[in-house]
């Protein structure tokens, strides 16, 4: 009999706590530990490598050194200042790219004619990696913020359009037929049918878009920026302080995971709100 089950038993009766209790009962330590197994193994291998000096300290600094650098960067405000700029770029680029992606994706999904005209061109353009656009876009936008935002937006646009169009095309035809037979209003069709039915696909597209946004952000900050997490990493390499580079990687990993988890949560929430289509 452990504390948790005691608590669970005690709160069982109280209705408002019922969900909490259920959550606690569902919690198994393995759920939390499994995802940590691989990082722990990597950390162990890293520590062993560092202790034995298999790689020069300039190439792979020991974990403790990276931790202390990370601590310094947080304390001195470097991480906060750079992260602020990077997150601003990500938010703006994501909002623009995913926003226009939703619109374009919906149009391509709804209109067969538009898809016939624009689909192939769009798919061809989508094949060009964001990095390939950089030299051309520098000539158009110079090195100002606009360049970074456009490249991030472009990186978000492609997966969003593809997922949205796909999501709409995948709506089972008999749903649409039922809607037509019932003469549902446009509004009702949109909110009760189209959005709920496409939501799961659209959100997986948005999550993909967000991860593309991070890749694009780091690329543009490494190429043409004076600040941001990506620039901090390039600068760390220039100063031959790989601990700064690894600290930057850790920060990006944690923030990226948090944002992805956030999007996944929102998707679950929305799916709960929407009527079940099973």
């Amino acid at each position: 009999m452990n504390v948790r089950s005691l608590v669970a038993r005690d709160v069982k009766a109280a209705a408002p706590f019922g969900r909490l209790a259920a959550g606690l009962r569902a919690f198994r330590p393995a759920d939390l530990l499994l995802p940590l197994a691989l990082p722990a193994a990597v950390l162990l291998a890293w520590q062993v490598t560092a202790v034995n000096g298999w790689l020069p300290v300039q190439i792979l600094p020991p974990p403790a050194m990276v931790l202390s650098t990370l601590h310094d960067l947080i304390r001195d405000g470097d991480i906060a200042a750079n992260l602020k700029i990077s997150l601003w770029r990500i938010s703006l680029g994501f909002a623009l790219g995913a926003g226009s992606g939703l619109v374009l994706g919906t149009l391509l999904g709804v209109s067969k004619t538009l898809d016939d005209y624009l689909g192939p061109v769009f798919k061809a353009l989508a094949q060009i990696p964001s990095l390939g656009w950089v030299p051309v876009l520098i000539l158009i936008f110079g090195l100002a913020e606009a360049l970074k935002i456009v490249i991030i937006a472009k990186a978000c646009l492609v997966p969003t359009v593809l997922a949205t169009a796909q999501g709409i095309r995948n709506i089972p035809r008999h749903y649409l037929e039922v809607a037509r037979v019932l003469r549902l209003s446009g509004r009702t069709r949109l909110f009760k049918l189209l959005i709920p039915a496409t939501l799961p696909t659209v959100f997986s597209g948005l999550r993909l878009a967000l991860s593309h946004a991070w890749i694009a952000l780091i690329v543009v900050e490494m190429l043409a920026a004076q600040e941001g997490v990506g620039y901090m990493m390039v600068w760390g390499r220039t100063l031959f302080q790989i601990d700064i580079v690894i600290a930057g990687m850790l920060v990006i990993g944690v923030i990226g995971l948090a944002m992805d988890t956030g999007l996944a949560r929102i998707a679950r929430r929305l799916r709960g709100w929407a009527p079940d289509h099973g």
């Binding site: 030299p135 520098i138 000539l139 158009i140 110079g142 090195l143 100002a144 043409a224």
Partner: peptide, 18 residues
């Protein structure tokens, strides 16, 4: 000071960013 590599410096001058 704007930290840029050679090729980007040329682009920046052409785009009148610096």
């Amino acid at each position: 000071l704007v930290d840029l590599k050679n090729a980007d410096q040329l682009a920046a001058i052409n785009a009148k960013s610096v």
